[in-house]
């Protein structure tokens, strides 16, 4: 554990809590892509199956359980409790265009051809693209509430900090997880455009992020 990894995990947790509280308090999931949230729930489910097979640390176990619970709680807010506010028409990204190639790739490129490893690999690849329905929705509607952009900022910062964690671990421990690093770089690239808009528009206080 190093400072980059720990702060990355904290940012991830902060992002998920921001989103959950935003929906809970406003009693609305307007502007939120239910598809991205479903994909993240699928990411956590397929990655954390090792909860049943391996014990790493109390920290590891607790964080995994918290991520899983919050992911499903968020999905249930969007699709059940506040489904009237769900804008399914703007959330029109075709997730099969992500799921099919990601599933195929996880069978082809993995560390070990076992069910758990293939599912872990699937979750890593899927996470790198799971935010696309949300970014697509923002592009389509042309705006996002600032609280939604704070959520995206922390989510993007999380994987960016993991990049620093991997550089650190490579130097300190000789550890290099090729699948996670390559996917993490791809995932971070998707946020670059958003980061630019976030710094130039949201943080200069326009309340909402509107696209040019």
């Amino acid at each position: 554990m190093n400072i980059f990894r720990l702060s990355g995990d904290v940012c991830h947790l902060v992002a998920i809590i921001i989103l959950f509280l935003k929906i809970w308090r406003s009693k609305s999931c307007a502007g939120i892509s239910g598809k991205s949230q479903l994909l993240f729930a699928l990411v956590f489910t397929t990655r954390y199956l090792d909860l049943f097979t391996a014990f790493i640390s109390i920290y590891n176990t607790v964080m995994k359980v918290v991520f899983l619970v919050l992911a499903y709680a968020t999905v249930s807010l969007i699709y059940f409790r506040f489904r009237k506010s769900y804008d399914s028409e703007s959330d029109s990204f075709r997730v099969e265009f992500l799921l099919v190639p990601v599933a195929g790739l996880s069978f082809l490129e993995n560390y070990s051809f076992t069910p758990l490893e293939i599912l872990w690999t699937f979750s890593i690849y899927l996470e790198s693209v799971a935010i696309l329905p949300q970014l697509f929705m923002i592009t389509k509607t042309g705006e996002a509430e600032s609280i939604t952009t704070h959520y995206l900022f922390f989510l993007g910062l999380y994987r960016t900090l993991y990049l620093a964690n991997w550089v650190w671990r490579y130097h300190e421990e000789g550890f290099f997880d090729q699948i996670a690093v390559v996917s993490g770089v791809v995932q971070t690239i998707f946020y670059c455009d958003f980061f630019y808009l976030y710094f130039t528009r949201v943080l200069r206080g326009s309340g909402k992020m509107t696209l040019p």
Partner: peptide, 10 residues
Amino acid sequence: DDSDVDHDEL
């Protein structure tokens, strides 16, 4: 356990 790969990251 059917895997010898450990993933300690989240």
